[in-house]
Amino acid sequence: MKTLIRAGWTLWLPVLLVTIWWFASANSTNIYVPSLSRIVEVLWRDISSGLLIDAARVSLTNLAVGLLIAAAVGILLGLLIGETRRLRLILDPYIHFFRSVPQSALVPLIIGAMGIGAAPKIYTVAFACVWPILLNTIDGVRGVEPTIRSVSRVFGVPKLLYFRRVVLPGAMPQVVAGLRVALPIGIVVMVVSELFASNQGLGFYILNSSATFQIPETWGGALMVGVIGYIIVIMFSLFERRVLSWYFRSGAL
């Protein structure tokens, strides 16, 4: 009963908004604002025919590979730069500069140079996502307790073991925070790169339908991307709570 009341409290507004949309758009005469029922109908048609599922698979694969590359490069370099004070001081302005480049501006350059296949999209996502991960990993490494650091040194802990068992876990909360920042950037860059030029994926579905004036499909594709983005972010926060349960339990926040 208690959970039911709570669900009611949290869900009444979204339900109300969707209901208003449903009825307000039902008799829409504006061809650019199709009725919600029509959008849902089209969405269902293209999901059950597998068209949208395939598109989502293409987009999400690009996103995942790009993010994995960004995470691998960002964490490795971050551990290295964070541990070496000199390197950090020297490279700091450059890293901040690359972090500040509006990621969407990269899209025409990388896609123009490498064509419209999957690889340039993966590179663009990776390039856009690597900087927040890198910066956060550096911050995390710097935050490792100095005492722990000197104890490891005094006991002559081998370098590799030291990185794997001391620095990496110590920096983990910050690393995960970096991934959390990178994730929405990656989704945006994925969508922009597909809207810019593509022949498959969710962005292509949207682009293609708007170019051929299939307006309900355009709305449907946009909603689909939004819902997928929302699900990814929610799943990530669940993953974060799991991976960092020791950190949240320690009350360090």
Partner: peptide, 20 residues
């Protein structure tokens, strides 16, 4: 009451709405 709506708005990749 607004938490789900706000969360959804924040996580929504707005750029997808651009064509619309």
């Amino acid at each position: 009451s607004t938490s789900v709506t706000v969360e959804f708005g924040r996580a929504f990749p707005t750029i997808a709405l651009m064509p619309v």
